[in-house]
Each structure stands twice: as structure tokens, then as C-alpha cells.
């Protein structure tokens, strides 16, 4: 098991409000909009000492997130709808047990030549 569950003890509702969110810019509740299909998740390792004890379903997610994994991949592996997984991810993010890395921003107005060239080169190597 990649997540040391015994360290994830303690239930404190007061401490929850001050834990930093990587994604939510200081809002107190992560929202479903914080997770796209290709948002990359990672379990926080070691988990915050004062995080609430994860539920079995959450532990399954945390194990899958030991390495970076996209929301869509996680849902497919868990055989759960993305909408259901995202609700659980909101809780995990709020508890400080995962971080969520948003997709590379894509804008039609200001195309990112450097990014496109990287993708081009990568495809060329296939």
C-alpha cells in the first residue's frame, strides 16, 4: 500500500479551513470545475498529519494517485463515472490529501508555438 493509512489520523474540523489548496486560489471549497478530464492528480506524500482518515473508496483513489494520473484515467481504472470521481476528488483536495495540476492552457488567440513544437517533436518520435 502506497498510502500509510496509520499516519492519516485525527479528525479536526477547525484545521481543515486553513489547509492550502494548490488549485482553488484560496477558496474554502474546491468545486467540480477545478477538475477537467485531463487535470493531473497526485497523492500528497506523506499525507498531512491532521488530515481526516480516508474512507476505503478514497484510499483506492489515493493509491492510484501515487504517481501522476489524469482524472479520466482514474475514473476508467476505478470503473466509476467521472462525475462521481470528481465529487470524491473535491473532498480529497479539501483535506489536503491530493494536489491537482490543471491542463496546459490553450488559447486560440495566442497560440503557444513552443508547446506545439514539443507536441510535433513528440509525435515525430512515435
Amino acid at each position: 500500500m502506497s498510502v500509510p493509512a496509520r499516519e492519516v489520523g485525527g479528525d479536526d474540523s477547525a484545521g481543515r479551513l486553513v489547509r492550502p489548496f494548490t488549485l482553488t486560489g484560496g477558496r474554502t471549497r474546491p468545486s467540480r470545475a477545478d477538475f477537467t478530464l485531463i487535470t493531473t492528480l497526485m497523492a500528497v506524500d506523506p499525507p498531512p498529519v491532521r488530515a481526516p482518515r480516508p474512507q476505503p473508496e478514497q484510499l483506492r483513489i489515493l493509491r492510484r494517485c501515487a504517481r501522476p494520473i489524469a482524472v479520466a484515467e482514474l475514473a476508467a481504472h476505478l470503473d466509476l463515472p467521472v462525475s462521481v470521481v470528481v465529487i470524491m476528488l473535491c473532498d480529497l483536495l479539501e483535506a489536503g490529501l491530493i494536489t491537482a495540476h490543471p491542463p496546459h492552457p490553450v488559447s486560440a488567440r495566442t497560440p503557444d508555438l513552443d508547446l506545439l513544437q514539443k507536441v510535433r517533436d513528440g509525435l515525430g518520435r512515435l
Binding site: L37, A70, E73, A76, V82, K118, V119, G122, L123, L126
Partner: peptide
């Protein structure tokens, strides 16, 4: 919804939906 993945580099992953 089905999708695949192409790892471009350590820093960049392309998904196909």
C-alpha cells in the same frame, strides 16, 4: 467516452478523446 494517451516527454502528455 474513450480515450488514449501519448507521452510526449516527462513534462508533457497528450490525450486523445
Amino acid at each position: 467516452l474513450d480515450f488514449g494517451r501519448i507521452t510526449i516527454s516527462r513534462e508533457l502528455v497528450l490525450y486523445l478523446f
